[in-house]
């Protein structure tokens, strides 16, 4: 309960920051990506501003044994660059450029422009579902290969 309240607070602060920064506006995001056209550099300040507290937070994290409201840190430890990361980033960038929306602003906009945000978020979840279906199909195939003695 305490953890969920913490997460709700963090989410609300995140959403408020998106709304204040201008990043909730798809046209501004597309303007930021339009470096060969009418470039709008405002979002550089958003990214710069966001990196400051997080840069400090990582330094504090390195000195902590456990987070303040949970038992332990659960952080990604993968370091290798693989085809999945690269192709995923390429695809995400294309979608981001087409509509000017990434997941955070899209979900925040559910409260600010419900109709178009809902269409985008629903499609986004469908894209996530397609990914889950494809990868869950992959897994049993790999398993049958490793326990291949019984296989054909």
């Amino acid at each position: 309960m305490k953890q969920a309240l913490f997460a709700l607070l963090a989410g609300a602060l995140f959403g408020a920051g998106l709304a204040l920064s201008g990043m909730a506006d798809p046209a501004k995001v597309r303007g930021f990506l339009d470096i060969f056209g009418a470039w709008n550099p405002t979002l550089m300040f958003v990214m710069g501003g966001a990196l400051i507290p997080m840069g400090i937070a990582w330094r504090i994290q390195a000195k902590l044994l456990a987070p303040l409201a949970a038992e332990r840190f659960n952080l990604p430890d993968t370091t290798k660059l693989d085809a999945r990361l690269i192709s995923g980033a390429v695809l995400f960038g294309i979608g981001w450029g087409v509509a000017g929306l990434c997941p955070g602003p899209a979900i925040t906009d559910l409260a600010l422009a419900p109709r178009p945000a809902f269409v985008f978020v629903l499609a986004m979840l469908a894209g996530m579902l397609i990914f889950k279906i494809i990868t869950s199909r992959d897994l049993p195939m790999k398993e049958t290969k490793t326990t291949g003695a019984i296989g054909k």
Binding site: A89, W96, A99, L101, C102, V119, A123, G127, F131
Partner: peptide, 10 residues
Amino acid sequence: AGLVVGFGTR
């Protein structure tokens, strides 16, 4: 865009 963002981010 939503489909591609959902799939690509995962």
